[in-house]
Simulated scan of single mutants.
Amino acid sequence: MQDFTEERFRPVLADPGVGGDPLDGGAVRRVLLCSGKVSYDLLAAREAQGIDDVAVLRVEQLYPLPAGELVEALDRYPNASEVFWVQEEPANMGAWQFMAVNLPAELPAGKTLSAVSRKASASPAVGSAKIHEAEQKDLVTRAFAQ
């Protein structure tokens, strides 16, 4: 309730930490940027696997790109050279194309941007719940393993 009554809109949501404890910013080697439901999948997988060197930042505002807020959030992880945009959508859909064009110019020196997504497709969905679940599991695994 407090978020709705006393807070304000935040274009970038900070990493909530692992098990209630904040991440050690200096130990983080990779940052995953995402938007929407995939963030919950990423956070659940990180918690289940006890991963504490990957930060998950949720981008709530895609346009205009909240460059200042993103840079501020990324500055918390000085040793993270890998930044990934993670999306459930195929590579030719979703926000990846916008991020690929606009985000690299805003990244701090020494940080590279890549994507983790489903392969390009003519359709946004596979049409099978079982295939979707398998693809989603693979997507989350690749986000942490690349």
Rank of each mutant, 00 (worst) to 15 (best):
71 V>N: 00
71 V>Y: 00
72 E>Q: 11
73 A>K: 08
74 L>I: 10
74 L>F: 10
75 D>N: 15
76 R>E: 14
76 R>T: 13
76 R>Y: 04
76 R>V: 09
76 R>G: 08
77 Y>V: 15
78 P>M: 11
78 P>G: 13
79 N>Q: 13
79 N>D: 12
80 A>W: 01
81 S>C: 13
81 S>D: 15
82 E>L: 10
83 V>W: 05
84 F>C: 03
84 F>G: 00
84 F>N: 00
84 F>R: 05
85 W>D: 01
85 W>K: 02
86 V>A: 04
86 V>E: 00
87 Q>E: 13
88 E>W: 12
89 E>T: 05
89 E>M: 04
89 E>G: 06
89 E>K: 01
91 A>M: 07
91 A>Q: 07
92 N>S: 04
93 M>Y: 07
93 M>L: 15
93 M>R: 14
94 G>M: 05
94 G>C: 09
94 G>N: 01
95 A>T: 08
95 A>F: 09
96 W>D: 09
99 M>Y: 14
99 M>A: 13
99 M>F: 15
100 A>W: 05
100 A>Y: 05
101 V>M: 04
102 N>C: 13
102 N>R: 15
102 N>W: 12
102 N>K: 14
104 P>C: 10
104 P>G: 10
104 P>K: 10
105 A>E: 12
106 E>V: 13
106 E>C: 11
108 P>L: 07
109 A>Q: 08
109 A>I: 06
109 A>R: 09
110 G>S: 08
110 G>V: 12
110 G>I: 12
111 K>S: 04
111 K>G: 05
112 T>I: 02
112 T>V: 06
